[in-house]
Design a binder for these strands. Structure first.
Lengths: 318, 318
DNA sequence: TGCGTCGCATAACATCGGGTTATGAACGCG
DNA sequence: CGCGTTCATAACCCGATGTTATGCGACGCA
């Protein structure tokens, strides 16, 4: 960390232009300034440096030895700056860059592949990295700057909701909401109904998912005054469905999970009452959405997944 | 000649400081600014570049990808600038540099060796080049930027005096004046006098020196109404004196010439009437005296040659 | 050699970038 | 759960740096 350099970029560029063009006027034109501007700047620079940089030579000017020294270094300096500027321009122009994405497990096999594919198609220069993480961890990574975009979900009424705790450093937007459905064995008496009341499931054995899902299960049951008996836990949706099909219990599943794991024979899904929707959120650091590469990823997420999902919803008549 | 770079030095230095120190406040302290100054500059830079450079990370800030790009180039850029600045500082500090000197032939064996020796002693880092040239040529080279310092002489009343023709691009200062003396054979009748009148030499055969000296001879004689008969010409002072010793004619010689060529047996020198002094001038490009290396040379010339000469003059009782 | 054109320097003036201090809000720590 | 630290914002101020206008010297050409 050295002191302020007496040699500023402007002087370097000016000296360089004069070295190449031979006159102050021409340099001024080339740099887009008026002639006196260059003259005065030179005088100031000379005063700072303590030595003349140019000497009048008949009609034009000529560089003194110190001036020639600057001119000699000018190419190096400006090219170093141009290199940085060029790389920056590539970043801004989305011809390069990296987006680091975190998303919850279920998204890994649904949203994320589409997203990464779309990114590659739209911005071949961009590189994307992906890491699977549950919402709390994903938000932690976001806060720590380990990822740029976090795709999370959030259950309504979630007490420790990380999205709306007034954290001004994060910006989250709701991508869409999806219903949480009940998975139960096909032969189950309640399977005859279209909509199953949670209160009627007080005596069931429950299969819980990830901690957040389990939390939602507890909260939802508590809301109707029952306490679920949780006997099995797995965050693997396929396993959950197969366990249900085997008659080992019932489970709540976000509908997205069904996209990754088709309902096996012996199990079926039903809407619940009261119904509950899980929100799919996309979260970035506050202001990070203005970083070109991140912005591109956000746009991709919203257009591809959001729009397509809504279309799909409309088609299925929900 | 590209357009103005969006990436200025200030931003580079700031980003670099933030990258190394982790907080805006620390960077501000390190750079000698207030904290809001850095904040605002960053905002401006981000607006210019079209992308955020830093993102808040808990207590401090963290660089975004574009910011990291700048930080990565920062070392290159600042080191390139420091290299130029350092070289410039050496120039200004007289630890290096070049002075190109031109002087008239007689000075080559008197003034110039002392000057070069003194320069080497006082400023070992400075390099000096020397070229021998008659005053008109020396001034031409000066004007063309081929040399930095010209040591010339000038006869009084010189019509085409290159020193005072209002040439504002050159600055000349009088080092000292030296008398022009008459060389004549020892046996010559006028040799009996201490001072010889030019008018009495109307019928002599003359030996002329360099064009300028010849011009002075003609002018001096014309001033007293005589026209010298010039039979021999040589710019070699030794030859002139030997020719005079051989009785082949008389000659006018600046006294400096006697320092290079001792008066041989058979010749002697006398003052002339009217007397005439030749001025020894040191000339530089206007303003070039402020270039450190040139300034050092000028100081050396004035102190060493000027002072010593005056001392010598006092010692010889002139 | 005198004139027209070009280029640099200077003066007078305008303006805005970039600085400062003051103050508020958020974060993390003890 | 306050306290220190850090960043952001506002209000203000100033001087660096630009502009136009003008004068002068240098070159080239007839």
């Amino acid at each position: 960390m050295n002191a302020d350099p007496v040699l500023d970029l402007h002087s370097v560029r000016i000296v360089r232009a004069i070295a190449e063009l031979g006159t102050i006027s021409a340099a001024a034109r080339a740099l887009g300034y008026s002639q006196p501007a260059i003259s005065q700047h030179l005088r100031r620079a000379e005063a700072r440096l303590g030595t003349p940089l140019v000497a009048r030579a008949g009609r034009g000017v000529r560089l003194t030895e110190p001036g020639q020294v600057i001119a000699r270094h000018a190419i190096t300096i400006t090219s170093a700056l141009d290199a940085a500027g060029g790389e920056l321009a590539e970043l801004v122009g989305l011809r390069t860059g990296t987006v680091r994405i975190a998303a919850f497990p279920t998204a890994s096999s649904t949203l994320v592949p589409r997203l990464l594919h779309g990114m590659r198609r739209q911005h071949p220069g961009l590189r994307a990295s992906y890491v699977e993480a549950e919402p709390p961890e994903a938000l932690g990574m976001l806060r720590d700057g380990l990822v740029d975009v976090a795709i999370t979900f959030q259950y309504p009424g979630d007490r420790a909701d990380p999205h709306r705790d007034g954290d001004a450093t994060l910006e989250s937007t709701l991508l869409y909401t999806e219903p949480v459905v009940l998975a139960l064995p096909e032969g189950h008496p309640l399977a005859a109904r279209d909509v199953v009341a949670l209160a009627d499931l007080a005596d069931e054995r429950w299969i819980a998912g990830c901690p957040l899902c389990r939390g939602h299960l507890l909260a939802a049951c508590e809301a109707v005054g029952v306490t679920p008996r949780i006997e099995l836990e797995t965050d693997n949706a396929v396993a959950v469905l197969n366990l249900v099909a085997s008659g080992l219990g019932v489970a709540l599943l976000p509908r997205l999970a069904l996209a990754t794991a088709p309902v096996p024979p012996g199990a079926c899904v039903r809407a619940t009452s009261p119904s509950s929707d899980r929100g799919i959120q996309v979260v970035v650091q506050s202001g990070a959405g203005r970083v070109p590469a991140v912005a591109a990823a956000l746009a991709q997420i919203r257009s591809e997944d959001g729009a397509e999902w809504h279309l799909r919803q409309a088609a299925t008549g929900r």
